[in-house]
Design a protein around this nucleic acid. Structure first.
Length: 566
DNA sequence: GCCGTTTTCGGCCCGACTGTTTTCAGTCG
C-alpha cells in the first residue's frame, strides 16, 4: 500500500465521520494526517517498522496505529466498520457539487434514497421540498450537479492515470517475449482527462504477454480476453486495454492506437490522395507493404514530418509546413507560483528551493497567498515583509540558484489587488488570482480580471478560469477579452500545471500564443513533490504547440528579471 | 484526533455565500 492510497483512506474516513456528525476537529485531524502522509518523502514501510510515524506533525498515536495496520495487512478494521454504517451510494452522493454529507444523510434517513439515480428521480418528482432546508432552488441545483457529475463519471485525471500506466509498462517489460511496449491512446497525447489506459506491445507470443499482463499488481477483474486484446479493470475502477501485435506491425499500430480518431481520419485521407491505404497493420501501396521501423518512418512514408503525439488532434498539424520545435521538460530554467508553510504549503521555503534546485532549475518564484485568502493563512503586509527578509537570507546560500520574491495576490471582487501598492512594489513579481465570488456574471468577472491585469504591479494571471477538472466548471469569463488585455499591457498568463487545473487549457494557450501573449508554466506547488507537476504543464504546453520563446520560464534569470521589470 | 502545556484538558481558522428562514445550517475554499 503506497502513501497515496493511505491518504485516500484517511480522507474517506474523514468523510464518513462527517456523516456521523463527529467532532469537526477530529474530522480535520484525519484530513491533516492524509495531507501529511501524501507529502512524505521517506519510505512509509520504514517509518512503520521503526515506529516513527507519530514523529510526523499531524499524526499521533491513534492514526499511527491505523496506518500501521494498513501497511502491515492492507486493511483497516476501523475503516471497514465505518463503511458498513453508511450505504456506498449515499457516500457517492457527496461527489455532487454543493451536495455534502449532511444533505446526503437527510435524504437517506428521511426518504430512503441510497443512489444518485434515485436522488435525481426524487428531484424531478419534487419530493425533496418536503424536507427541512430544501427548496425549489436546491432541487434545481442538485439536478445540475448530477448532470455535471454524470458527464465526468468514468473519467480520470491525467495525473492519476499516468503513474499507473508507467507501472504497468514496467511490468510488461519484465515479460521475456515482449519486444516493444508503449502507452497509446489519449494518455499518450497527454489529454488532461482520460477514460481508460491503452497499452500496446509487440511480441512473438501474444498469449504469453497477456498471461503476464493480467497478473500485474492492482488488476481486480478481467473484462475481456481475445487473441490480440485484453481488457482488465483495476481495483481503482480504471479500465486498461492491452493490444499485442507483431514486431513489424508495431509502428503502424502505435500510430493507429494513439489517435486521435480525427487525426487518423485526416492521415488516411491524405494517404488516399497519394494512392496509399493506411490501417493499424501497415501502409499499403496496392497490396505492397511500405515498411516502417518506427513512427517517424510512418509519417515520412506519408510525406509528413514526425508529428509529436501531443499535436495529433487534427487542429492543423497536417497542414503545417514546419512543425514547431516544441519545448520539453529540459527547456524550463525555473518556476513561478510556489507556496510554503508561510501560507498553505506543507514545506518551508528552503526545502522548496532545494527541491527545485535538485530538479536542475535555476530560480524559483515564491508566491504565498495574500491576506484575503484567510482559509489559506494568507500573508498581510507585515508578514510579507518578514518573508522577504527570510528570502534575502536564504539567497546568500547559493551561487547557482535564486528565490524570487513574489505573491499570489487575490484579485478582489472590485478588481483591486489585495495588498497595498507600496508592498507590491517591493516584490519581484505578482501573480493575481481569483479565489472568491465565483458567481459573478461574465461581464462583471471579465471587468474584474481585466482591471487587475492593467494594474501596474500585476505580472502574471493565475489559473485564469478557476476550473477544477472533473469537479467544478470555471467561472464565467470572456477569455478573448482577457487575453487581449494581457497582450495590450504586456502581461503574462499562467499555464497552471496543477493536474486538476491545467488552466489555461491547451486550446486557449494556443490562442494566447497566436495573439502574442507570453505564458508561464507554473506548478502551483504546495509541497516539494508538487514541483514535479510541471511535467503536466509542459505536456499541456506541447498540446498547445508552444515553443521555448512563448514561455517565460524557459529563459535565463537575467532575461526573466528584465521581462518582469525588476 | 492532534498538540502543547498554564500538561491529562481545551483549543484547533473561519468568512463568504446560498438558500433557506427571520437566525441558521450546509458547503466551500
Amino acid at each position: 500500500m503506497n502513501t497515496g492510497q493511505i491518504a485516500q483512506i484517511l480522507d474517506a474516513i474523514a468523510l464518513l465521520l462527517e456523516f456521523k456528525d463527529e467532532n469537526p476537529f477530529k474530522i480535520r485531524a484525519y484530513q491533516n494526517a492524509a495531507r501529511a502522509i501524501e507529502s512524505l518523502t521517506s519510505d512509509i514501510s520504514t517509518l512503520v517498522a521503526e515506529k516513527k510515524l507519530s514523529e510526523i506533525p499531524g499524526i499521533g498515536k491513534a492514526i499511527e496505529e491505523k496506518i500501521t495496520q494498513l501497511v502491515m495487512t492492507g486493511k483497516l478494521d476501523y475503516y471497514e466498520e465505518l463503511r458498513k454504517e453508511i450505504p456506498e451510494g449515499v457516500v457517492a452522493m457527496c461527489e455532487i457539487p454543493s451536495f455534502g454529507p449532511k444533505k446526503a444523510r437527510l435524504v437517506w434517513k428521511e426518504l430512503g434514497i441510497t443512489t444518485i439515480e434515485a436522488l435525481r428521480k426524487a428531484c424531478l418528482e419534487d419530493k425533496l421540498s418536503s424536507l427541512k432546508g430544501f427548496g425549489e432552488k436546491t432541487q434545481k441545483k442538485i439536478l445540475q450537479g448530477i448532470e455535471f457529475h454524470q458527464q465526468h463519471a468514468g473519467q480520470y485525471l491525467l495525473s492519476d492515470a499516468m503513474p499507473v500506466a508507467r507501472r504497468l509498462l514496467a511490468h510488461l517489460k519484465e515479460c521475456g517475449t515482449v519486444h516493444r511496449v508503449s502507452i497509446a491512446g489519449s494518455l499518450r497525447r497527454w489529454k488532461e482527462t482520460v477514460k481508460d489506459i491503452d497499452l500496446l506491445a509487440s511480441a512473438t507470443d501474444a498469449a504469453q504477454v497477456m498471461d503476464h499482463f493480467v497478473k500485474a499488481e492492482g488488476v481486480s477483474e478481467i473484462i475481456g480476453r481475445g487473441d490480440t486484446k485484453t481488457s482488465v479493470r483495476l481495483a481503482s475502477g480504471m479500465q486498461v486495454d492491452l493490444r499485442v501485435v507483431t514486431e513489424a506491425q508495431f509502428p503502424y499500430a502505435l500510430a493507429y492506437f494513439t489517435g486521435s480518431k480525427e487525426h487518423n481520419v485526416a492521415v488516411r485521407q491524405a494517404a488516399q490522395k497519394k494512392g496509399l491505404k493506411v490501417n493499424e497493420y501497415g501502409i499499403f501501396d496496392g497490396s505492397k507493404l511500405i515498411e516502417c521501423k518506427d513512427e517517424a518512418a510512418f509519417y515520412q512514408a506519408l510525406g509528413f514530418p514526425y508529428i509529436p503525439p501531443e499535436m495529433r488532434e487534427n487542429t492543423g498539424e497536417l497542414d503545417y509546413n514546419a512543425i514547431p520545435q516544441l519545448l520539453d521538460f529540459q527547456s524550463l530554467k525555473g518556476v513561478f507560483h510556489t507556496h510554503s508553510t508561510w501560507s498553505d504549503g506543507t514545506a518551508g521555503i528552503e526545502a522548496m528551493a532545494e527541491k527545485a534546485r535538485s530538479m536542475g532549475l535555476r530560480y524559483m518564484g515564491l508566491s504565498d497567498h495574500s491576506k484575503a485568502a484567510s482559509y489559506a493563512n494568507g500573508l498581510d503586509e507585515t508578514r510579507l515583509t518578514l518573508q522577504m527578509k527570510e528570502i534575502d537570507k536564504l539567497n546568500k546560500k547559493w551561487k547557482d540558484f535564486r528565490i524570487l520574491k513574489g505573491l499570489e495576490c487575490d484579485i478582489l471582487p472590485n478588481g483591486d489587488l489585495d495588498l497595498t501598492p507600496e508592498i507590491l512594489g517591493k516584490l519581484e513579481f505578482v501573480i493575481g488570482s481569483v479565489h472568491s465570488r465565483f458567481d459573478m456574471s461574465e461581464k462583471e468577472m471579465t471587468d474584474r480580471v481585466c482591471k487587475a491585469i492593467a494594474n501596474e504591479h500585476f505580472d502574471i494571471l493565475g489559473h485564469a478560469t478557476g476550473r477544477l477538472l472533473l469537479s467544478r466548471e470555471g467561472y464565467k469569463l470572456d477569455l478573448g477579452r482577457v487575453l487581449e488585455t494581457a497582450r495590450k499591457h504586456r502581461k503574462i498568463v499562467e499555464l497552471n500545471a496543477y493536474p486538476n487545473r491545467l488552466d489555461l487549457d491547451w486550446i486557449h494557450c494556443r490562442r494566447a500564443k497566436e495573439l502574442g501573449v507570453m505564458l508561464s508554466i507554473n506548478p502551483d506547488a504546495h509541497s516539494t513533490a508538487d514541483l514535479e507537476n510541471i511535467e503536466y504543464g509542459v505536456a499541456t504546453a506541447r498540446r498547445a504547440w508552444l515553443e521555448k520563446k512563448d514561455v517565460l520560464n524557459t529563459r535565463d534569470l537575467n532575461e526573466v528579471l528584465e521581462i518582469l521589470d525588476v
